[in-house]
């Protein structure tokens, strides 16, 4: 679903590494040399299984890593370097230019304040020239935008009076209140039923169409990515191992892990019990115990001994705007 995306790069992450100092055990790279970019108006899906580092990536972009994490590399947002930026500058960005939609809507909303008050607060933190009634009418507009019926009365409800899907909508309303340039949505629909997920994704779509915000969608669901993202980055054990437009990644899959992942999914449109699912042997190593060489090689059916188990693969060009971190991908001519 291509929105009004332009070629202007909004966010550029280069060689980002996150290093953890552990009190016990060995220090390790939770994220290693990760590069990403998002153009204005574009949706980038980041997909990976639990422990692949996808949520940590969003925490790094937001500047919200735990204290024992050491970050290196570069995160440029609207031309401004975020790594090493002053906390006050980051605070100014967060919530205004850069917004996050949390996964758990129940804990992300304060139970003792009305939904309207919390939306108003999200606005007034960055713009305190608005009167109380202006804030309220903005909150009503936002609730309407995210598809909550009767927003004039709903605005005075408390979070517990909302259903799960409505709370998630309210959170979206809060995060888009200041028309951010980039919305980071970390598993925004994981806790929801499919029919509600469809509603929420529809809301995100409409907001993107209206505001031309970019979206960084973090999920474990390749189906959501296929329907929603323009480009996709596949993460494995702290690395982006494949990145490109959704069509190229889904149809001209370059990395064996991505291929395995796609093959292991039961599909809604596949006939009953047509054939066994592909099973990737073993399980994803935690970044603390990443194997030598390519971190996927112990599970890879085509790994080459002496190469994949010793050398960390570099990024190869698998096609136009499509890269993969695999020794077995042949570089394509850039066009």
């Amino acid at each position: 679903m291509t929105h009004n995306s332009t070629n202007e790069t909004l966010l550029e992450v280069n060689d980002l590494s996150v290093f953890f100092h552990m009190r016990e055990g060995e220090d390790f790279f939770a994220i290693r040399n990760l590069s990403l970019s998002i153009a204005r108006g574009e949706s980038l899906g980041v997909v990976g299984e639990s422990g692949s580092g996808k949520s940590l990536t969003s925490a790094a972009i937001m500047g919200l890593l735990p204290a024992n994490a050491e970050v290196s590399g570069s995160i440029r947002f609207l031309g401004q370097e975020l790594i090493g930026a002053k906390e006050s500058d980051l605070r100014e960005l967060r919530g205004k230019r850069l917004a996050v939609i949390a996964q758990d809507a129940l804990t992300a909303l304060n139970p003792v304040h009305t939904v309207g008050k919390q939306i108003a607060e999200a606005i007034s933190v960055h713009d305190n020239n608005l009167s109380k009634s202006e804030l309220r009418s903005r909150a009503v507009d936002l609730l309407d935008l995210v598809g909550i019926s009767q927003p004039e009365t709903r605005v005075d409800n408390f979070p517990h009076e909302f259903s799960g899907g409505m709370r998630q909508r309210a959170l979206i309303a809060m995060s888009v209140a200041n028309e951010p340039d980039l919305i980071i949505a970390d598993e925004p629909t994981t806790a929801l039923d499919v029919t509600v997920q469809a509603q929420i994704l529809d809301v995100l779509n409409r907001i993107q169409d209206r505001t031309s915000s970019s979206l960084l969608l973090i999920t474990h669901d390749l189906g959501v990515i296929a329907g929603f993202a323009d480009r996709v980055a596949v993460m494995y054990s702290g690395d982006v191992i494949e990145e490109g437009g959704v069509d190229s990644v889904f149809y001209e899959t370059a990395h064996p892990y991505t291929r395995g992942l796609l093959g292991s999914l039961p599909r809604l449109d596949a006939r009953n019990r047509s054939e066994p699912l592909y099973r990737i042997p073993g399980f994803q190593p935690s970044p603390a115990q990443r194997p030598e060489g390519c971190s996927f090689h112990p599970r890879c059916s085509i790994a080459v001994a002496g190469k994949c188990d010793t050398e960390i693969p570099i990024v190869h060009r698998a096609g136009p705007e499509h890269v993969a971190r695999c020794h077995l991908v042949k570089d394509q001519e850039a066009n």
Binding site: F20, E24, G25, A30, G51, L56, A59
Partner: peptide
């Protein structure tokens, strides 16, 4: 941060 706890050695 689920990712971080998953990483702690068992």
């Amino acid at each position: 941060m689920a990712e971080v706890t998953a990483v702690a050695k068992l």
